[in-house]
Amino acid sequence: MKKRGIGISVGTHPAGLKGGGDPSQAQIRLKPDGTFDLLNGAVDIGQGCKTILRQLAADELDVPLENITHQNIDTDTGPMCTGTFASRVTFMDGNAVLAAAADLKRKIREWAAEYFECSPADVEVANNKVFVKGVPEKSLTMGEVGAMVNWGGKFLVGTGAYTPGPGQQFDPETGKMTAIASLAFGCCVAEVEVDTETGVVDVLKLVQVFEVGKAMNRLLCKGQNNGGAMMGIGFGLTENVCPYYPSMDFAVHDLTDYVITTAADMPPVMVEDIVEVPHPNGPRGAKGYSEMTASLAGPAILNAIHNAIGVWVTDYPATPERILKALEAARA
């Protein structure tokens, strides 16, 4: 017999180390052709930070996105990044990039003020140009500025750093720790069909919504939401290194026996969305939330299984064997 059920899960996830103390740095330089090199230690592992950080730099400098190149080829010689983990890069490195771009813009204004014989406060950097406010004839393209600066013996580099606050420890009595940077929130609803004769679970529909602060790139958010859903389904139903833990019998030794979800295993109906509540300390209001996209599908699926067949499977993954054992125990 096949039975259907619906389950829900909610969650929250911090950006960066929960107690703070995880800084990032950035550096951006003006090149002779008027384009920019952004140096930063963050590693793009598929979450899209090379796009996001370029977007932030381009926005602050008011230049085209294609005029920014992100360089992170050597973490030993480049600006420091605590690491690409803990959903921290958009928040920490994004703020560092904004600070570096603002620093470079200030230096461009100072150089242009000397060239135009005016106050730096009267110089505007906008629309890929540098000009004196209200004086149209005193204007240079960014390409002209890059050539004049570099071939004139100058080297304009902006630097920036950000940390949400000094590191702190858990309270030994209560376990309390203040979340320093930001918290993102999410909700997942799963509809499943459980075959009570075989124990096989099919996920029919999955809905995930995340509060992300301000989305820097909606398409990247969609990819993250759907990719995280695939990981969450695997976590909930198939992925298991030690199926009889603490016994190591039949432990997985290579990926041949480690069952991960593929596109063929995705639900027929998938819905993803975001809610935007700009964070006051986030870069342009953004938060980090990526890891949470993989955290919610599993518990929602287990709750849906309980709703369908009336028994709890409390260990991940909810394999057919575990479901049949739970049903048998309920009948005993």
Rank of each mutant, 00 (worst) to 15 (best):
K3I: 09
K3A: 11
G5V: 13
I6L: 09
V10M: 04
V10G: 05
H13Y: 15
L17G: 00
K18V: 15
G21E: 04
D22G: 10
Q25P: 14
A26C: 09
Q27H: 13
R29L: 11
K31H: 01
D33G: 07
D33E: 05
D33N: 08
D37K: 07
L39F: 09
G41L: 14
G41C: 14
D44C: 12
I52T: 13
L53I: 09
E60S: 08
E60N: 06
D62M: 00
V63E: 00
P64I: 05
T75V: 12
T77D: 04
G78C: 07
G78K: 03
M80C: 14
G83I: 15
T84R: 00
F85H: 01
F85L: 13
D93W: 07
N95S: 13
N95A: 03
N95H: 03
A96E: 06
L98S: 02
L98Y: 00
L104S: 08
L104W: 08
K107H: 10
K107A: 11
A113E: 05
P120A: 12
A121W: 02
A121E: 15
V123C: 07
V123R: 01
E124H: 00
V135H: 01
V145C: 11
A147I: 09
A147Y: 01
M148L: 09
G153F: 00
F155Q: 15
G158K: 13
Y162M: 04
Y162W: 06
G165T: 04
D171H: 04
T174V: 06
M177T: 08
T178A: 14
I180M: 02
F185Y: 14
A190P: 15
E191Q: 03
E191M: 05
T198A: 15
T198M: 08
V200Q: 11
V201D: 10
D202N: 15
L204M: 10
K205Q: 08
K205E: 06
V207H: 04
V207E: 01
F210Y: 14
V212P: 09
K214V: 10
N217T: 05
R218P: 00
R218V: 14
L219W: 11
L220S: 08
Q224R: 01
M231L: 11
G236E: 03
E239P: 05
D249G: 05
A251D: 05
A251V: 01
L255V: 10
D257M: 04
A264G: 05
A264N: 03
A264Y: 09
D265H: 11
M266T: 08
M266Y: 08
P267Y: 04
P268D: 04
V271F: 08
V271T: 03
D273Y: 00
I274N: 07
I274W: 10
P278W: 06
N281E: 13
G285H: 08
A286Y: 07
Y289M: 04
E291L: 06
E291A: 12
M292S: 10
A294G: 01
G298Q: 02
I305N: 00
I305Q: 06
A308T: 11
I309D: 06
W312Y: 15
W312A: 11
V313I: 12
V313W: 09
D315L: 09
A318Y: 06
E321Y: 07
I323Y: 11
I323W: 11
L324K: 13
K325V: 11
R331T: 01
